[in-house]
Design a protein around this nucleic acid. Sequence first.
DNA 1: CCGTATCCTTTCTGATACTG
DNA 2: CAGTATCAGAAAGGATACGG
Lengths: 106, 106
Amino acid sequence: MNDDDYICSVEAAINEIGGKWKSLVLCALKDGKLRFSEINRKIPRITQRMLTKTLRELETNGLVNRLVYPEVPPRVEYCLTEKGKSVIPILDELCEWGKRYGTHEK
Amino acid sequence: MNDDDYICSVEAAINEIGGKWKSLVLCALKDGKLRFSEINRKIPRITQRMLTKTLRELETNGLVNRLVYPEVPPRVEYCLTEKGKSVIPILDELCEWGKRYGTHEK
DNA sequence: CCGTATCCTTTCTGATACTG
DNA sequence: CAGTATCAGAAAGGATACGG
C-alpha cells in the first residue's frame, strides 16, 4: 500500500469514529442495544440535540442501527451493526493506550 | 474497569489523535524523521498554518519531538516519541478497518 | 419518550501576506 | 526554510423551548 492509500484510509476511519461524541456513543452500545434515554444516562454531559445528531451520523455511516417501536409512548432502540461491532476492539486498544499514557505526559 | 473509566480513556485518546490532521501527520512520520517541508509534501492539502498548529499540539501531548538545528537557512526535524510510535499500530488497524468497510456502506 | 427548531457562542479552518 | 499574523467564513457545540 502506498502512502496515499494509507493516509486516505486512516482519514476515512477517523471521520467515522472521531469528533467529540461518536466514540463515546459506540462504547456505550458495546454491550448491546439501548434506548435513547439509556444512552443519554451513560453519557450525561451530552445534550439531546448532540446525541440525536451523533446517532444519525453513526447510522448514516452504517455503524449503528435504529429500531423504532410503533408504541405510545415511543420507544427507540439503538444497537451496533456488524461494522460498528468490528470497530470496538480498536476502541478498546485506544482505551488501553489512553490509560497507559496519561494526557500531556512524555 | 467501569464504564466511566473506559469512556474517559477513549475520549482522551481520541482527543490526542482525532481531528482533521493529527492522524495524518502521525502516519507521515511513521517511517522516521522528516523536515517541515517534507511533511507538507506528504500531505499536500494541509496549509502551513494548520501543519504548524497540528505539530505543536502533537508536541504538547508528547507524541512528536521537534528538533531545531541552529543553521541558516533554518532546519527543523520532527519525529515520533515513544508514545507517538506506540499509537502507530492502532492507526494501522484503523487503516485496515477503513479499507475493509468503505465509507457509507453497511 | 424521543426527538426538532431556533438562536447564539465558540472553535476550526483556509487564504493570504509577511518575516528572521 | 519554517514559520507568524491577520482576517473572514464555516462548522461545531450548547441552551432552551416546543411538539407528536
